[in-house]
Design a binder for these strands. Structure first.
Lengths: 349, 349
DNA sequence: CTGTTAGCGCCTTCAT
DNA sequence: ATGAAGGCGCTAACAG
């Protein structure tokens, strides 16, 4: 059916090994003219190496596994897009896996990927324990965890890439404090992941440092109705804002654990008859594409996603071989938009 | 390294062929007790067949290619998520490809997929001509085009799955007419794709049938600044709305070719100092997850994505073998929300 | 510098 | 009902 290395060899009057050598850049093992002849034959016949055969022989495959909670979530969709385009430059294809943040599904995916010969996996998981990946590391899988800082007891060969969540939360909170807010709320879903915990801690430590009394600070951790859906975040945020604003001493500013919650919070603020950016300030986290399309545009903490995607794939494909077990923290940036922009200092009490 | 079929055979006191037969469900060729013995050995040793070897031998691989314009676009992200979960149920993994709507990149991806032994491709492309896929169909690739109705001159073996765009646009437009609007605008990016053309035609035929004079109807087809980015849609919509509203006889209602444009249009309406849902009505298309989180929530035409994803994967993995070249049109549904809900009849002039 | 050789792990006739 | 044997297309020793 398809043209094989044998036929190329015949057409170029060389042996299959020589063709293989050309294919694999072992130029020193042949005359330049031989190489030219082989390359011509390859072009003429339209030869493409059979990757299954190559994989069977070498054990290597030019694919990486990308495990995300859900590509339907715009944050992960954007990340997946970036990862795919970076990987492609190195000749790697991307196998998509949606884990729904379920450790068991994560493990099942790793098993599948391993069975497919995929030994490089970019795991987007922020679960505190990742003991379930240990067996795969031991079998020789290279795993880089994204969106998760390294934790005590982590396998030493696991590399982590994440934004500095604590710093991000501090930037968000400081911004609100500088605007004159004194009654702040933090809105999040279940704080099951280390990044949410870090963001919450960053928030708490900042308000504390500013001398704000603990009873001025509200923290909403939705226990969830079972489903850990990424897509319910906005609804949770909305309900949280409504509830918090109906209390005796309602907050005047909200920090949300991510933009989807923040968008929901904005909706909840409107439900309560208040204006976002005027009566109440809201800050998100991530700077997803939609953050500046909502009304009002969302002040948020930007993750430098393109750089993070590039760095992560780099570690996965090259770096990890050199220095596994590293932990990389990327720098977030405060992006001020209308959801806080129009609150004058002191006005918000 | 890994355990092979040979070792299982030895452990079960049978030949490799028998193990293979067990693996492939050829039960009739062995005693039930033999089968049990083999299965025990498989479980005991934790044997997983080597897929590269299997692929090399059979030419088949349990993967499908998913080519989308961009997973960063929430519509495609949602679709990708659904496709992956449906495919998984049939034991298929998904290779992700972002085409950016570029026919050349599409062809390159198909080439890559073919080289990887992937012979089932779900191509989300709405380009009018798909002559570039013809060679792959001829080589034996199964391709189902999603989001594209079949066109004259299409390769006969190409199956198409799409929503009924014309009907959707009619639903959207009728809704606005029933609300009393008489000066309507249609906002789209470049109308390069057949679905955009169908939506535009559905809009035009509906206003025409309602006896609206052609000069009351505005159509905005952004020529684009070169980049066909899915993510610029909102910006285009915003600029379009601003421009159209500044004309002498501004429209009172907008139909957008999809929700991202519609979200942009809403922003543009606000830029012009008008209120969406009160002064001006906006209808989108797709019903992406964000449609009911924006402010105001977006009236839109829902595509039944879960069913569409299931049907498409079905055709790709089973159906296409039986009856290739089919064309499937799914039924859209009008979802009324606040972006049109609060416009009383007749008030909008 | 180039060719020969021996598998990688599996499936699949064809014998037995 | 089971086994033996060959080969899918490629790479990597090892000869020459």
């Amino acid at each position: 059916m398809a043209v094989t290395i044998q036929e190329v060899a015949r057409a170029a009057n060389v042996s299959p090994s020589t063709v293989s050598n050309v294919l694999n850049g072992r130029d020193s093992r042949m005359l330049p003219e031989t190489k030219v002849r082989v390359e011509q034959a390859i072009a003429q016949l339209g030869y493409r190496p059979n990757r299954a055969a190559r994989q069977l022989r070498t054990g290597r495959i030019q694919m990486l596994g990308l495990v995300v909670p859900s590509v339907a979530n715009p944050f992960w969709g954007t990340f997946a897009q970036l990862v795919e385009s970076v990987a492609l430059r190195s000749g790697f294809r991307v196998l998509l896996c949606n884990s729904e943040r379920d450790p068991q599904r994560e493990a099942e995916y790793l098993e599948e990927l391993w069975a497919d010969g995929v030994s490089s996996v970019l795991l987007c998981s922020s679960l505190p324990s990742i003991s379930h990946v240990q067996p795969f590391l031991e079998r020789g899988m290279t795993i880089v965890a994204f969106d998760r800082t390294s934790q005590l007891g982590d396998p030493p060969s696991l590399t982590n890439v994440s934004v500095d969540n604590s710093l991000g939360a501090q930037l968000a909170t400081s911004h609100l404090l500088e605007l004159g807010h004194r009654r702040l709320a933090f809105v999040s879903g279940r704080v099951h992941s280390v990044n949410r915990k870090e963001r919450l801690d960053g928030f708490l430590s900042t308000v504390d440092r500013a001398g704000i009394a603990a009873n001025e600070v509200l923290v909403w951790k939705d226990s969830g109705s079972g489903r850990a859906g990424d897509l319910d975040a906005a609804e949770v945020g909305r309900a949280a804002a409504r509830e918090l604003l109906s209390r005796p001493c309602p907050p005047t500013a909200f920090v949300a654990t991510n933009d989807m919650f923040a968008i929901g919070v904005c909706a909840g603020v409107r439900d309560a008859g208040l204006r976002v950016g005027a009566d109440v300030s809201v800050v998100g986290f991530d700077d997803i594409m939609l953050a500046d399309l909502t009304f009002p545009a969302l002040t948020t903490i930007r993750q430098p996603l393109p750089g993070m995607a590039a760095a992560t794939v780099d570690y996965l494909l090259d770096g990890a071989a050199g220095q596994p077990g590293q932990s990389v923290l990327m720098r977030p940036e405060l992006i001020v938009r209308a959801s806080t922009g129009r609150c004058a200092t002191g006005e918000s009490q």
